[in-house]
Design a protein around this nucleic acid. Structure first.
Lengths: 338, 338
DNA sequence: CGATCTCTTGGGAGCGCTCCCAAACAGTGG
DNA sequence: CCACTGTTTGGGAGCGCTCCCAAGAGATCG
């Protein structure tokens, strides 16, 4: 086992007393091989501990069995840690089920994005999974131009001209569900603490809130903008209470802001959920330990990773044209804050 | 740009009017090339958008320029999200600086570990980075047997016989610093809420606490065991206060438990930090927003990823023997709880 | 001025694999 | 008994690259 050189196809063939082609056929599961030879080849394979050389195979098949996952660093801070980690986990799982490798790459700046695009166009990978693309990223176009399949995770702000494959989480739907829950549990003055309006998540969650309001025949919208961060949540919650001291429900577009809202409400003498019900968004790890435990929207991040991989594989394999768009549903985790 | 086939070395050579060998020399930065030819080759490279074919190169050099990062899934839940994510980020950064790829693999069960070991032994990667290995993982041995360099992140419980390269975070030191801070700021009855004693982090953090106590000439150790989780923190904190109602400082072995301790203390009528000072461990994202903001130990997770990659590269390149052991220092983040 | 040395350069060999063509073989039917 | 079919097999060609040897081009020197 200590040889510097691994056994080759040729060696297996010699040992099994057959030709190279036959061994190759066995390895790749062709049915054009008699059972007897198949067995003796397999014996030789195990005896020698043969493992196919990926590089050699790639060279001739022009496939690498490798998929790149591109992460745009700066965003990943915003996107909160667990979310990203779960996407990676999901993608890894799905890919390895199908015998593919995941290659992780990150590109912060747009210049790194371009460099990466060039690299990926070089057919070093069979496909690309891109998460949280910047608004003006050229990546999808670069890849499309050189025919490298690409699946985007999370709808980017400026919609691209190139038809692309997209797996998204239903922000509108999530916000709608959250707001709806507030309304359905009898809250009559439901405000929203929104996210930044230059981010898809911020915009869409606000849309979901409005939609739910409209559906129940209201137009008493009451909103205050935050940036998804804790501190902005404190300020925005104050503003909301000031604007309407009698509000009894608030949909907060991120858990971090919701946690801030919880505390601010308490400091303003409101009891949660008795006086004001709060629903957050993200289901960050700490939410279940908040005071009171936070009712929130959970995002299927792992599922998103899996789905991205699945869409990619189905594209790579079948070479289909046109754009796929998968939208994943969120679900409401009911705890005590609403 | 839309060709199915990428330009090859050969094509670049023809276009530049030189031989294959010369182009190869230019690409690989050999200095055995005259400036004039170097320039004309580079021109041809950019004109054609040539990118070297990795598979072809690997085939002849016997190197893959790829490093695998192995994560043991079940643990990663314990290890908390951000910690793992940051290791990945650090490793990716360092590797890509050196022109290497990171291949992410995960293996939950021990059987998956074995399968993975076999795969990795097949010289598909130049080296392996393994995080949070199980106690009895055979991975290091398998890899060592087939000569694949491997660096472990985080000291595993049962020390292996194979000499190995290790990058660890100084849990003892961190706990020592934390406890020390409590003592130095005048706390006289310092307890500890420990982690599970079947995990290195749990054991070492307790050792650090004891060491600090001993150094200041005390033996009034007061501990209660938790499992790093929130709920266990509540129970353990209660037990501690019951055991010594007058304790005025507590070092908690995880932030999640510390957050629980904070709330428990408050509910028992203790003010933090006035009556009891609390220092946590981990510096999870929410800690800065705790009430009061939690003083805690920050772990250099990203640095750990980087360091692991660096150690690996220095091993791979120089083929040195013997074991390396790098221990990274933590640092105390002083907020308001202590 | 030819011999010698150094700096460049071209290109054959070969890395380990898959693809594919042709050969070998075993039946089948006329 | 001879085409003819269908199954199984062997092995040449070639994927794109690096390695390395030998040859060409100058430069230097006796």
């Amino acid at each position: 086992m200590n040889d510097r050189r691994r056994p080759t196809l040729e060696m297996v063939a010699r040992r099994a007393g057959v030709g190279r082609g036959t061994v190759s056929r066995v390895i790749n599961g062709s049915d054009q091989v008699s059972e007897a030879t198949r067995v003796s080849v397999m014996d030789a394979v195990t005896a020698l501990g043969y493992v196919p050389n990926r590089a050699a195979r790639s060279l001739v098949t022009q496939r690498t069995d490798t998929v790149a996952l591109v992460v745009s660093e700066p965003e990943d801070r915003l996107f909160a840690q667990p979310f990203f980690a779960e996407i990676v986990r999901g993608a890894t799982a799905e890919l390895s089920d199908r015998g593919l490798q995941l290659m992780l790459t990150s590109a912060g700046s747009e210049s790194e994005h371009e460099r990466l695009g060039d690299y990926l166009s070089g057919r070093h990978v069979d496909g690309v999974l891109a998460v949280s693309l910047h608004r003006d990223s050229v990546l999808p176009d670069t890849l499309a131009a050189s025919g490298v399949p690409c699946v985007i995770g999370g709808r980017p702000l400026g919609m691209r001209h190139t038809p692309l494959h997209l797996v998204d989480i239903d922000n509108v739907g999530g916000a709608h569900t959250a707001t709806r829950h507030l309304i359905d549990t009898g809250r009559t003055r439901v405000a929203s603490l929104t996210g930044p309006q230059d981010m898809v998540a911020g915009v869409d969650r606000l849309r979901g809130y409005r939609k739910a309001l409209a559906e129940s025949g209201r137009d008493d919208e009451l909103i205050a903008a935050g940036d998804f961060g804790y501190d902005s949540g404190v300020a925005a919650m104050r503003a909301l209470i000031e604007a309407d001291p009698h509000l009894d429900g608030v949909f907060v577009a991120s858990d971090l802001m919701a946690l801030a809202a919880l505390r601010t409400l308490r400091s303003l003498g409101r009891r949660v959920p008795d006086d004001v019900a709060v629903v957050g968004y993200d289901d960050v790890p700490f939410s279940e330990h908040a005071e009171p435990p936070l009712t929130t929207i959970h995002q299927p991040a792992e599922r998103m990773g899996r789905e991205m991989a699945r869409v990619l594989i189905d594209r790579v394999l079948s070479g289909g044209t046109g754009a796929t768009e998968v939208v994943l549903a969120t679900h409401l985790v009911i705890r005590e804050s609403a």
